[in-house]
Amino acid sequence: MSEPLRILVVEDEALILMQIEMMLEEAGHRVVGTAVTAREAIALIPETRPELVLIDLRLGDGSSGIDVAHAVRDLGGITAAFMTANARAIPEDMEGATAVIAKPFSDTVLGASLAYLKDCVRRPPPGAEVPSGMRVAPNWLASFAEMRA
């Protein structure tokens, strides 16, 4: 088995957070931290050094996952993806994130999305098609087309 992804989960609903953690660990990945607010997440990024940050859109204390996506983008070298029931509220450019996985999602959708994101992190460009239940930022996909050319 390949090295597990190091994942930071940003989710303010405790039960959903526990479910996501369990699903990630069962899929063989390592949850390096969790946060319920944008401020907590942004502070944890340099401390935990994740490869992937999974972000809910609406967070505790009224903060926004978009702020987390911007921080990840500004740091560089880390992949961010939204996991939200509000997928339509995310602009087409995804605010610097790579993708959005719509909630609720099944183990199958999460597994396929994680496999795709792992390829994005470890050996871009991804070889597989974008999985069902996931939307990818068009400009991000275009950057891979340029790599292939």
Rank of each mutant, 00 (worst) to 15 (best):
V10G: 02
P4T: 08
E40I: 05
M134S: 03
A35V: 10
R6P: 00
A38H: 10
L54R: 09
T108M: 10
L57A: 03
E95K: 13
P50E: 12
E3I: 13
V32M: 01
A41D: 01
I20N: 10
E92L: 15
G33F: 09
I78T: 09
M22K: 14
A99M: 07
N139F: 03
D74Q: 15
A99L: 05
I45T: 05
E47I: 12
H29V: 11
G65K: 05
N86E: 14
T37W: 05
A128E: 12
A14L: 08
I20C: 04
I101P: 04
R39N: 10
E47H: 07
L52G: 03
E51G: 02
A149V: 04
G28W: 11
Q19F: 06
A43L: 11
A89E: 15
P126Q: 07
P50R: 11
P131N: 01
V36M: 07
G111H: 05
G60Y: 00
M147L: 15
A87V: 03
L141N: 04
T48M: 14
L54Y: 06
P50G: 13
D93T: 11
A69V: 09
V136N: 01
P50V: 12
A142N: 05
P125A: 01
A71K: 09
E95Q: 14
V136R: 02
E3N: 13
R58S: 11
A87P: 09
L114T: 00
V53Q: 03
W140D: 02
A35K: 06
S64L: 14
A137Q: 09
D107Q: 05
I66P: 00
G77V: 13
L17N: 03
E26S: 12
R49V: 12
M83S: 13
I66V: 15
A97N: 08
P50I: 13
S132L: 12
A142S: 06
D67K: 06
A87I: 02
K103G: 02
A87H: 13
M134L: 12
P91I: 13
D119Q: 15
D119V: 02
V10A: 04
R123G: 10
V68K: 04
M134T: 14
I66M: 13
L59I: 04
L141G: 01
A27W: 02
F105Q: 05
A112S: 11
S106Q: 03
A112V: 00
Q19L: 14
S64V: 02
E95G: 15
L52H: 12
A85M: 06
A43W: 00
I45A: 08
L44Q: 11
Y116V: 00
A81Q: 10
I55H: 03
L141Y: 00
A27L: 15
T37E: 07
D74N: 15
E11C: 06
G77Q: 05
I7S: 12
I66S: 07
I45M: 11
P46E: 08
S106P: 04
K103V: 00
V36N: 00
P138R: 14
V100K: 01
G33T: 09
L59K: 01
M134Q: 06
R30F: 01
M134I: 10
D56P: 07
A137P: 02
S63A: 06
E13M: 07
G77T: 05
A43D: 12
K103C: 03
R58N: 14
V72F: 14
K118C: 02
I7K: 09
A85S: 14
A97P: 04
S106W: 04
V130R: 05
